[in-house]
Structures are given as C-alpha cells and as structure tokens.
Design a protein around this nucleic acid. Structure first.
Lengths: 331, 331
DNA sequence: TTGTAAGCGTTATCAG
DNA sequence: CTGATAACGCTTACAA
C-alpha cells in the first residue's frame, strides 16, 4: 500500500516536456522525436508510472473492457466459451468482466445494465434463451453486442453458432442404426437453437423410417440431477438411446443408468451435445457432438473487436463447423 | 445503438435543480427534500439516465470493480471459486474482471499490472504457487488483496485456506486402513500448501506404522492427461491407493485404471483433493476431500470488501472447515 | 515535433 | 437543503 499516484504531469515534469507529449509516447503516437521519446520513457521508468485507465476511458470514451454474460461459469460449457473470449480479449488488450446470470431474465437485465454503466465497449452474451426484453435491451445498447451459441430469430444481432439442425440430424442418424426408440433431451423449446434441433431430430427419424413420438422428447434444465432423474423415465418407455443436448445432463443420465446396471453402449447409447470437458472425464467417455466451445468464444470476441473498432464486417451470422466425437457410449 | 449519452446535467436541467442535487439523489444522500428527490427521480426515469461509472470512478477514486486472477477458468476448481467471488461481489455491487494466468508467472505479472491500471478496488488472487516477484507486486499494490486457497509464507497477505496438513493426514489415514503402498500426487512442492500436505501425509504414515517412501510421491501439473499417464507408474510400483490433490488428475488416473481393468475400490482406492464438480461426475464417484471451493471464493471476496471499505478486520488468515466426502473410490 | 487548453461526467468541498 | 466550482487524470483538437 504505497505510491501516491504518479500522474502524467509528474512524468512530464521529470522528462521536461508537456503532458501532451507524454500522452503521445504512452499511446505510441509516431510524431515524437526519438530523443524526446527516450527522455519520456526514462521518466516513466524512473517514476514507475502506470497510466490510469479510468481517466483514459473517460477522456477517450473507450474503456478497453468488455463484458461476458453467461448463465454460470461453473458449467464447463460456458467456462470454455469464457476462456475463448478472454484469450482473444487479452490478445487485443481488452479486459473482460464476468457476469453470471443464472439464466434468469431479471438478473440478465441487471447485469447488462451494470455493464453498460461501466461503459464496456462490447458484450458477448450467451444463455439458454433470448427473452424479448433482453433482446431489446441489447439491440438498443450503444455498445457492440455478439451472441455466442444463440440464434437471434430476426438475425439482427450478430451471432456465432453451429448448425444445430444438422448436428441433431447426424447424431440421431447414428443412433438410428441400432435403435428404434430414440429420446431427445434438451433445454427449453422456447429457444430457436432447440427448435432447430427438433427439426433435425424429426427429419432424421423420418429418414430412418421411425415414427416421431412426442413422448420421447424431454425438456429440462441444465442440472446433473436432472439427468439422473431421467433414467427411470426413459427405461420405462423402452428407450434404448438418447441424444442429450446438455453435457451435464448427459453425464447424470449415464451415471444413473450405470448405477442401475445398464451397460453402455451395449444396452443403451448416448450422444451428448457439446463435447465440453466432462464428456471426456466421464466413464465411459461420452460420444459427443463437438461444439467448438472455445472457438465459439474466441470467434465471438474476435467479431466483437471488429465491431468495436468499426472495422468492416461482411457477415454477422457465423456458423462454425461441428463433428461427432466417438467415445464409449455408442457402438 | 442510440441515445446520445444523457448526463447528470441533462437530468438537472429537466428536474430544474443543480447537478449537485442530482448527484445526491443518485447516491442516496439523505439531505434532499422529498419533493426535490421525486422531481429528480422523475427526470431520471424520463430521460432513462444511467450514471457513468467511469466518470464516477475517476472522481471518487473507487471503481467498484475487483479482479480475480486464477490459472484457468476451465478448471472446475477455479470456476467454483470464481462463482463464489462473483456472487458476493454482486451482493456488494462490485463487478469482477476475470483474468486467466495459466499459472505462468509472466502472465500473472501482466494481468495484475493491467488490473491495477484499471484501478480495481481489490484483487482476489489464486494460483498454484506464489512466486516471489508476484508476492512483492501484490504487497506493494495500492489495491486490497486477498489470496484464495494459497498460503503466504510470511502471513503478510490476507488469505483463506483449509487446513491442508490435517486434510492430507485424514485422507491418508483412511487409505492406510486397507493399504500399505499409498501414493501421494500433487502439484509443485514449491508451494506451501503442498508442503503442508506432505507433512500430513508423512505424519499419517508414521501413525499407521508405514515407512515413508519418497518414490511414492509424484509432483505434476493440473492436467487430466497427467493423471492418465500416472496409472502405469503407480501399478508398476505396486501401489494400491492414492490421494490425488488435483481433481482433474484424479479423474485421469481413475479412468486410466479402469481402462486397464483395475476395479475400484476393490483393487485400488483413490481420494481426490478438492471435491470440485467432476468428482461427482466421474464413475464411480470419487471419494474426495471437500474443499469448500465456492465458500473459499465467497469468503475471500467478503474479506476483500471489508478491506476495501476499511472496515475493521481482526483476522486475516482464515481457515475454513473441510471434510471427506465418501463416494465410490474407497471401500 | 511539441505545447496549450478544453473537455470527458462525476464527486466533493464550500458557501449560502 | 441546495448550488457553485474545483478537482479526478487523461485524450484530443488546435496552435505554434
């Protein structure tokens, strides 16, 4: 707890120049004589001067800070996205404010409000569904916005996604090779991504000549416990395979099934939805649609920098490649 | 992308008062007549005014922003801590800047520097070891600092921990009931927490009448792959039980062992070190020392608020309770 | 190439 | 209880 804030004035005095010049060298402005630059640099080193980013932000109206709002950082899915965001953020010298929303519309509204008051230059937003009020709030914000892993129905907000429909179709198709009763487990059908998944699922069923059974679709939350609770219900309906959009739920189901003595993949097959780290940690490993989560975050942040720096952006609706990673829960 | 920044002046004009008065009502100052307050509030609502936190930070020298630096948010251990930090941070109206350091001293130095330039009011720091330079940097910072899950040798920096020695002793003691060759796997022995663990481990061995064998102690990194690689080495030494300080490593070991046909807990027992979420997701679930990670973060942040608000703090070296959660990898 | 000076949107100190 | 007015530390025209 020392040093009584040395300012740009102190540096100017010591270097024998004006504060404007100090500002120029600090900001890498080319119009400074090499000799002067050196004097300033020396003074900076001598005084251990550190520019005050808050003052800078006020004067320049740019804070080099962005916000990332997500349901909860404890979910590996969102943690991976956040890491991607942070890595490219620091690459471009931005800091990121983390905001957990718990998927709760009110909290989402509050944290966005808070981020905007902090004058963040941009926001990467992700969650399980895009409520109308939040959409409006985001759209009318003066900061740049990018949605990560969410589709904006009107395609007005920039977003990065994978082709959920295709991924669901492929996963279902793989399970259809050996199964007739294939369940689909996902979050709320109120969000567009899940609607897309349903379309892919049904399309795949049709291709395989299996009749769609509404009773085999389960909506639910993000919890591990939710997955465990599903085991009995699936077994009761004679289900022998499931694609589970949310990894934590997939692991819950997997473990509950094994605890009942069900053998995987022999008696039951599972394909998880996002290939977050836990699909690798489970035993057996979960075959999984590989959503490139880290990239999702990284690309979102990259797009955000373009938006913030007013670079030209031709395409604001990006679709990343996906694939299915084969592990131990499929034959 | 609208609204051309409405300021405190605009509100003052519309409300027919001075900006000082607006500032007072915004900051909940009691010295404002009820009638005036209402006028101001109405103007604020009408103009949809949102105070500029950057300007506020510059004028007041308080940013209501803190930083949390950790190795990587993708590790569930740190994610849980971060969540604890964020929850009590928002409770006290602080925002938190997330900084991944990858356990790299240079990066740690950089992010701390960056946080300080952003004038954060405080920093919660965590990592696997406290390098000397970082220690100095932290100690001389003008912001409040709290270490989460790290011991400062000199006890100069405030910190929140569990009793690592006792935890190691208890875990080893439990394994010693059925095993003679008990390995201990942890991060670098350069950090105090791990030295403490070693002491507890050896003490427990002595209690059980088992001779300490240096060859049964394994240092390593945080990676899942590291755990997998350990399986063969342990088996080769005839080890039948291990306490593994890092959960990701424990899961790696568990899965590699199972892949080799080793039955747990029958043929091999494992106790993991932190009870992060993945110890529950693994199959079988990992018996685990319960480090109260969320609380670790929450209590750290709470202590930080006290430090930042200059509240009286009597004890800066806090030790949280731990316990051993029994799951499927012990008899 | 360098300096002067006017903000940036608040808070905070004094008067009144 | 309310209003001026001077900071806060920096960026950014505009001059020189």
């Amino acid at each position: 707890m020392v040093e009584s804030t040395t300012t740009i004035y102190d540096v100017a005095r010591v270097a024998g120049v004006s504060m404007a010049t100090v500002s120029r060298v600090v900001n890498g402005n080319a119009n400074v004589k090499e000799k002067t630059r050196k004097k300033v640099l020396d003074a900076i080193a001598e005084l251990d001067y550190r520019p005050n980013a808050v003052a800078r932000g006020l004067a320049s109206k740019r804070t080099t800070t962005v916000g990332v709002v997500l349901p909860t950082i404890t979910n590996p899915y969102f943690a991976a996205i956040a890491r991607g965001v942070d890595d490219v953020a620091s690459m471009y010298n931005y800091n990121v404010i983390l905001a957990n929303s718990d998927n709760n519309e009110e909290k989402e509204g509050k944290v966005i409000e808070s981020l905007l008051s902090k004058q963040v230059d941009g926001i990467v937003f992700t969650g399980s569904s895009l409520h109308e009020d939040i959409r409006t709030q985001l759209k009318t914000a003066r900061s740049a916005i990018v949605l990560a892993g969410m589709i904006d129905g009107d395609k007005e907000l920039p977003s990065i996604n994978i082709d959920y429909r295709a991924a669901a179709l492929e996963a279902t198709a793989q399970l259809a090779k050996n199964n007739k009763k294939i369940a689909y487990i996902l979050g709320s059908l109120e969000n567009t991504e899940n609607v897309e998944r349903m379309v892919g699922y049904q399309e795949s069923l049709t291709n395989a000549g299996i009749e769609f059974d509404e009773g085999l679709v389960f909506e639910g939350n993000y919890d591990y416990e939710n997955g465990k609770a599903l085991a009995d219900r699936l077994l009761a309906k004679g289900v022998t395979a499931a694609v589970v959009a949310i990894d934590t739920v997939a692991v819950g189901l997997l473990n509950a099934l094994q605890a009942k003595g069900v053998k995987l993949p022999e008696d039951f097959e599972i394909i998880a939805g996002s290939n977050s780290s836990i699909t690798e940690y489970s035993y057996p490993g979960l075959t999984s649609v590989n959503q490139p989560l880290y990239d999702l975050g990284a690309v979102s942040m990259r797009l955000l920098t373009k938006l913030m720096l007013k670079e030209e952006v031709t395409e604001t609706q990006l679709v990343l490649e996906h694939e299915i990673v084969q592990r131990g829960t499929t034959k």
